[in-house]
Nucleic acid binder design. Structure first.
Lengths: 245, 245
DNA sequence: CGCATCATTGAACAAAATCAAGCGAGGTGG
DNA sequence: CCACCTCGCTTGATTTTGTTCAATGATGCG
């Protein structure tokens, strides 16, 4: 399945959190993009790099992570198609974290210069991109609260809630759930938990009938009950009315 | 002590992470500001609000926090003079968290319209402000790692390292340390730890000669040793060379 | 002085980490 | 085609870290 074009993905994503004029959408369609396929586990940019391109995720899943001096790894965000996970590199020259692929993925590289140019010419695009980085930050805040305050059980539920919401916002989830690409190890690295404990937590969620997670596919039978358990309120995702519906 | 003007604070802060032309600095000096004094514990904006102004911290200390459905509170950031902690409200209409005062403080309110106007007219200011929100996000990422991966002992050390660095960057710390306004309860809410455990952790840090913390003043006798314990690398603060020195 | 807030202490308890094996499905090479 | 190997998942036992509960000091301020 060929799926939407890279430009369509980007536009759909930006429309999930902003509004674009047709002129702005057309301008975005003019962005030069170089496609690249990535293996599972491949790194796109690493801490210390000074990227000259931004990366748009077209297909698959990416994640950002920090490696501590001890070797411990903390995942700080998960990304779905349409996301530009290193948009920040437009204004932050040196990477303070790394960006890698969670699953085999396709990404499109866009030269910084081309983005800077669009931003200068279209205030609407500038706003949308700035806003995108701000939503990113809002999600980071929620993750701090997730790791800092919630029990393992709630934490896992919250992580999954957010993931499904993000997938729905770009049209990649339906009533039957959506792909969920994380291994238990990766979930642990996202939530500040050991693999063993993640395993036990998932079993508890399954036993309580809250999730059906198998073969990297996640289904939530009772969405309202699940949100309640997670303490999930989607406000922080700042979705436009259309995308939130 | 009257101290620097609100505009000076802002300019100094922006210069700690960017460079401004003299024309841009002059334009910033033209920003309309309304000063307000705040008590300890006062809230400036709350979750759900739709602010029409940004807030510049002139004097004192602010913090952002999320309140979970259970009533638990997670502090997501600490702010020192020169910071604009709700700059994000320029592009995110509704607040997904709250902003309050850690200590008696003075803040300056700036109408969104005035900021939007400056951003439109000076790309350098637009870049500096966008960059400021991106540094904010980088700090959130580091906090996720702090809460998710580090022991209580390291966590506390890291929190203090970051705070002192931010104070130094705007000229508010010297070799004798700096003010440190957090109660142990607030430190706990910042690090995902109970008050009791914060207390014991601080005692351990004191016993090891790493900190001298008394009457809300913090001094680090051996900075290199302390950074090592904390696993602290200031890259993520993205300070300009001048401010990092 | 008396109240309020913050800091400190001890004891019992709970959550999650660690250590150490096994299990199972998918992929590979002989 | 099958043995085998790897990676991710699962399980149990044990230990560690941090929480909770319940008081008791200390400090500052009106």
């Amino acid at each position: 399945m060929a799926g939407p074009s890279p430009h369509d993905r980007l536009i759909r994503k930006l429309e999930s959190i902003s509004t674009l004029t047709s002129e702005e959408a057309a301008a975005l369609r003019g962005l030069p993009m170089t496609l690249k396929r990535l293996d599972d586990d491949a790194d796109i940019v690493c801490i210390g790099d000074r990227p000259s391109h931004c990366c748009l995720l077209v297909d698959g899943f990416l994640f950002r992570y920090i490696t501590l001096p001890t070797g411990a790894r903390q995942i700080t965000s998960l990304h779905v198609p349409g996301d530009m996970p290193d948009l920040q590199s437009l204004h932050l020259e040196v990477m303070d974290h790394s960006l890698g692929a969670l699953a085999p993925s396709t990404v499109a590289f866009i030269p910084h210069a081309a983005v800077h140019d669009l931003v200068k010419r279209y205030t609407g695009i500038a706003s949308a991109l700035w806003r995108d980085t701000l939503v990113d930050a809002a999600i980071f805040r929620e993750w701090i609260a997730n790791v800092g305050q919630r029990s393992a059980y709630q934490r896992a539920a919250h992580l999954m809630c957010e993931f499904v919401y993000k997938m729905r916002a770009v049209g990649l989830a339906n009533e039957d759930g959506c792909p969920f690409p994380l291994t238990q190890q990766e979930m642990g690295n996202s939530m500040g938990l050991s693999v063993v404990h993640v395993n036990r937590t998932l079993q508890a969620l399954r036993a309580d009938g809250l999730i059906v997670l198998k073969a990297k596919h996640l289904k939530i039978p009772d969405w309202e009950a699940f949100k309640k358990v997670a303490g999930f309120d989607p406000t922080y995702l700042h979705l436009s009315r259309r995308a939130a519906a």
